[in-house]
């Protein structure tokens, strides 16, 4: 079956005074209908830029180049086509629910305006739809909420409003850029449950962007691990957590404290070293300076290995290399 979203060789660059910052260096991935794809990586690895590039929302200073980018029948490199599907069949929610809503307008106005724009519905039909969606995301007395302003709602409620607003037009794809990062843990869990529940009931595909691998294990169907602007590994949740092939993925998993497994009082795992600068060209494997199993050949081009749907960009990890993979 044709994937719902298809991205091939996406690059996002920022021109600096003397050089170029390559924020995204050739990302490729696919999202199938109704599935949850998680894009995981450290801060600054380019995961947010990837999501903004999909929606044509990159900052003005950024330039985008892409091999192919399709959403169903729509070519996402065509800006006019993007404007038709954006906020319509393809919706997005953001990290900061405190600032993502406009403080000057009531919730109801903000929820209905795009719906009216896209569908041509009347004001009262749009309000009815907004009440329905607020109920859908578990907000009590929705009619009252429509007249309220963002500052009258808590962070968790605002994120629910954001989700309800994104669902107004029944999108096929929801891009969620760290939607729970700014919330406290109990609210985080509620929002995750809500997203999973909505997905099952409404059959929307979700691209979930996060730095939190622990969270990914609770919602992902498939996972893309990003490092320094590029995909280093991709696979089903079972493949990534069960048999991670890239040393970076392995290192990330080792950083998740696990009740019962991790030793009590032991220091939390960290990855030594720092993320490489994305300014200028990166040759070879970007992770090699922090990699426990790096070889001299890692300075050259990295092969992309595949085992069914499981992909990884590393010289290691093929079956015969199994012994080499053991952390040094």
């Amino acid at each position: 079956m044709e994937p719902l979203l298809q991205v091939r060789d996406l690059k996002v660059d920022f021109k600096l005074r003397t050089n170029t910052l390559h924020a995204v260096r050739g990302m490729s991935f696919e999202v199938r209908e109704g599935e949850t794809l998680c894009i995981v990586g450290e801060s600054g690895c380019g995961k947010s830029m990837t999501s903004l590039a999909l929606m044509d929302l990159l900052p003005r200073a950024a330039t985008r180049s892409v091999g192919a980018m399709r959403f169903g029948e729509v070519d996402l490199t065509d800006r006019r086509a993007v404007r038709r599907v954006r906020g319509n069949e393809m919706a997005m929610i953001f990290q900061e629910p405190m600032t993502a809503l406009n403080p000057a307008f009531p919730i109801g106005d903000q929820m209905t305006e795009a719906y009216i724009h896209h569908t041509g519905a009347t004001g009262s039909a749009a309000r009815a739809r907004a009440v329905e969606m607020l109920t859908e995301v578990g907000i009590a007395s929705p009619e009252k909420r429509l007249g309220q302003y963002p500052h009258q709602l808590s962070g968790g409620l605002r994120q629910r409003v954001m989700i309800a607003m994104a669902l107004m037009t029944s999108p096929k794809l929801l891009i969620a850029d760290e939607p729970t990062t700014a919330l406290d843990v109990t609210i985080q869990a509620q929002i995750l449950r809500l997203l999973r529940d909505l997905q099952h009931r409404l059959g929307i595909a979700i691209v979930f962007i996060t730095h939190d691998l622990g969270l990914v294990s609770r919602i992902a169907d498939r996972i893309v691990v990003m490092y320094a602007g590029a995909r280093v590994e991709e696979g089903s949740a079972a493949e990534i957590f069960g048999s991670p092939r890239h040393p970076y993925t392995q290192a990330l998993i080792d950083c998740i404290p696990q009740p019962g497994k991790s030793e009590r009082g032991a220091p939390l795992g960290t990855i030594p070293g720092v993320v490489p600068s994305l300014v200028g060209d990166v040759r070879g494997c970007a992770f090699r300076s922090r990699c426990p199993v790096a070889q001299p050949v890692c300075a050259d081009a990295v092969p992309l290995r595949a085992e069914g749907g499981h992909l990884w960009a590393c010289i290691h990890g093929a079956k015969k290399d199994e012994t080499e993979r053991a952390p040094a």
Partner: peptide, 24 residues
């Protein structure tokens, strides 16, 4: 951020600028 939200909702540029940004 709310301007980015308005754009993400697919509102036309003049609505984003003259409603969401100018009001504030």
């Amino acid at each position: 951020d709310y301007v980015r939200t308005a754009r993400a909702k697919g509102l036309p540029a003049h609505r984003v600028i003259l409603k969401h940004a100018l009001r504030n």
